[in-house]
């Protein structure tokens, strides 16, 4: 008798908590619904239309089939995935290593190091694009170093060749966003008790072991977060392509978002087509994020 009563109470309490839970997320959910989902629905409808401004007409799947015949778009798709596969892992691992270095209690000047490493993402894109271009210019700093070291005889036009331009974009991305991701890891590391590390030290664990056996598993939720965000960010990559290389040489570095931007604002506007390409990005990110969540989002 008393058991069922308490069960009932527990039930109603759970129900109450359940409702409170919904109340907590209502404001955010509503705002996303109005500010993101509603425009997305409209963009989706637009993706089945062709024409400009108010001369739009429905044209079935033509925008969707069109993009697979569009050689520049296909190239941009390839470029973007190359960036994703190479840059994201390098960046995240580097950020993790730096964060765990900076989490060391005995390190001096931590504040300075942290601020320094964060700086690139706070530095305005305008200046960093100019700097990268001049660093890697034919008579730029990198070339003069390589010539002095005897590796090169004459200056190499890094941004003028497809492969090296891609590599520079990847370097630029790593340089700019490592500090950003480090912030999440640093804050995530605060949730790991320092005593865990001390215990590990007493047990004679090497720094390597501590890193892989303690830091990485405990930071898993944060690593998942940064992985999903970086995947999303890279597939929508735009700034670097536009400002560093302007997509060149010969579209060798152009990204999908950059091409979509060109189709919307630089060229004769094709918003229907731009929306269709955007939804391809959407599908790709969604699939990747789904896989990442499946792999990484298990509650212990």
């Amino acid at each position: 008798m008393s058991q069922t009563k308490s069960q009932k109470r527990k039930m109603s309490l759970e129900k109450k908590h359940n409702l409170t839970g919904w109340a907590f997320l209502t404001p955010a959910t509503l705002m996303i619904a109005v500010m993101s989902f509603w425009p997305m629905v409209q963009a989706f409808i637009l993706s089945f239309q062709t024409g400009t401004a108010n001369k739009l007409k429905f044209d079935g799947f033509s925008n969707y089939t069109r993009m697979f015949k569009d050689s520049v778009f296909m190239q941009s798709l390839g470029n973007t995935f190359l960036y994703l596969i190479i840059q994201v892992p390098i960046m995240l691992i580097l950020a993790l290593i730096l964060a765990s270095m900076l989490n060391n209690k005995n390190l001096r000047c931590k504040g300075l190091f942290r601020t320094a490493i964060f700086l690139p993402c706070a530095t305005s894109l305008v200046s960093y694009a100019i700097i990268f271009r001049s660093l890697f210019g034919v008579d730029g700093f990198i070339n003069s170093v390589l010539i002095k070291l005897g590796i090169l005889h004459t200056g190499y036009n890094f941004l003028g060749h497809a492969t090296s331009a891609k590599i520079i974009i990847i370097i630029a991305l790593v340089w700019r966003w490592t500090g950003y991701n480090m912030v999440f890891y640093l804050s995530g590391l605060q949730n790991i008790e320092y005593s865990v590390y001390e215990a590990a030290k007493i047990d004679g664990a090497s720094p390597m072991q501590t890193f892989f056996k303690i830091t990485v598993p405990l930071l898993k939720p944060t690593i998942l977060l940064t992985a999903v965000m970086s995947t999303n960010g890279t597939l929508q990559l735009f700034d670097e392509s536009l400002n560093l290389t302007r997509g060149g040489p010969s579209n060798a570095t152009i990204t999908m978002s950059h091409y979509i931007y060109n189709q919307s604002f630089k060229y004769v506007p094709k918003f229907g087509y731009a929306s269709a390409m955007s939804f391809l990005i959407f599908i790709l990110v969604a699939i990747l994020a789904f896989i990442q969540m499946k792999v990484g989002d298990k509650r212990d």
């Binding site: 060149g248 040489p249 010969s250 579209n251 060109n262 630089k266 060229y267 004769v268």
Partner: peptide, 19 residues
Amino acid sequence: VYYYEARDAVATAMQNIVG
């Protein structure tokens, strides 16, 4: 009307020709 598209296409072609 398609001036900017054409400019970019010609620039791409030129880069390839120089290459």
